[in-house]
Design a protein around this nucleic acid. Structure first.
Ligand code: SF4
Ligand code: SF4
Lengths: 140, 140
DNA sequence: TCCTAAAAAGACCTAAATAGTCTACTTATG
DNA sequence: CATAAGTAGACTATTTAGGTCTTTTTAGGA
């Protein structure tokens, strides 16, 4: 139950690079994999859920590749994490109601739920356009 | 690299129970394990780092047990997570400077660093006393 | 003084999730 | 019609989390 795995890290790097290069031409994964030093076969596996989530659009055949399906301003980091991790909570019991029998009486559950909310709000507030832009300090 | 594992979840439940019962008498882990339905041997392994972190104080022998080493108001959830997980970041590359060779040029690193900060600030803002108190909605 | 209840320490094992690879197939362009 | 690209799913390897076992040490109380 790790929220940010290499899937999100690799995937976001892919998308930021696509955002930087613009939506005009399709870009093949092989070139991204080489530049970003990510195993191409692994990266190609990340493309599928990103496409399913409506974040990427693919073009097959020679001169094919990927491009963003929406404008970088309209894709949030939360979208990416949810697409690649299949969830956006740090824990099993937050979100899914019946995941834990103690959830009714649990005094710590509200803490974890609140944590999830804080994380999601933060990730929702950053778009690919933000990330592609020059060094922004998100910690402020 | 999961930030909140069962270690933190179990450990926090232990500490909240101790906070609720007050610091007057030492409480043995077996009874906590039974009430909280946590494997006692596993719980005992969590006590060691909590003691090392100055969160718990132990008393051996018959009638021994554990009690909080500080007042519940002075123990934050962040203290607990750091003691039990040995870290407070979601990723390897945030925090440790040399963890990734790309960190200098990486456009996504600031996003993850910011996420870490948001998480830590949130966890630092909740004390055991808060958690032990009646149903508080931390999501507001 | 001995018995007992409890912490302490550390080796050990298992299961699950993550990370990565391989292969065979499909599609579109030039 | 060759080629560069995406698609799909099985497969393997590695790491980490979760849990157990065994032995030792300590202190209280009958
Ligand atoms: S006991 Fe509480 S924190 Fe643990 S899984 Fe259940 S609801 Fe979540
Ligand atoms: S590439 Fe960026 S996000 Fe990935 S590990 Fe390196 S610094 Fe962190």
């Amino acid at each position: 139950m790790s929220l940010i795995t290499t899937r999100s890290r690799y995937g976001l790097r892919l998308l930021v690079e696509l955002a930087e290069r613009g939506m005009a031409q399709a870009i093949d994964l092989g070139s991204v994999a080489r530049r970003q030093d990510i195993p191409e076969l692994y990266l190609s596996k990340l493309a599928t859920p990103l496409k399913a989530a409506g974040i990427l659009r693919s073009e097959r055949g020679a001169k094919g590749g990927y491009r963003l399906a929406r404008r970088p301003e309209d894709i949030t980091v939360l979208d990416v994490v949810e697409a690649l991790e299949g969830r956006s909570s740090l824990l099993e019991c937050t979100g899914e109601p019946g995941a834990c029998v103690r959830s009714g009486e649990c005094k710590t559950l509200p803490i974890w739920s609140g944590l999830d909310k804080v994380i999601q709000d933060y990730l929702r507030g950053i778009s690919l356009a933000d990330a592609a832009g020059a060094a922004i300090d998100y910690t402020i």
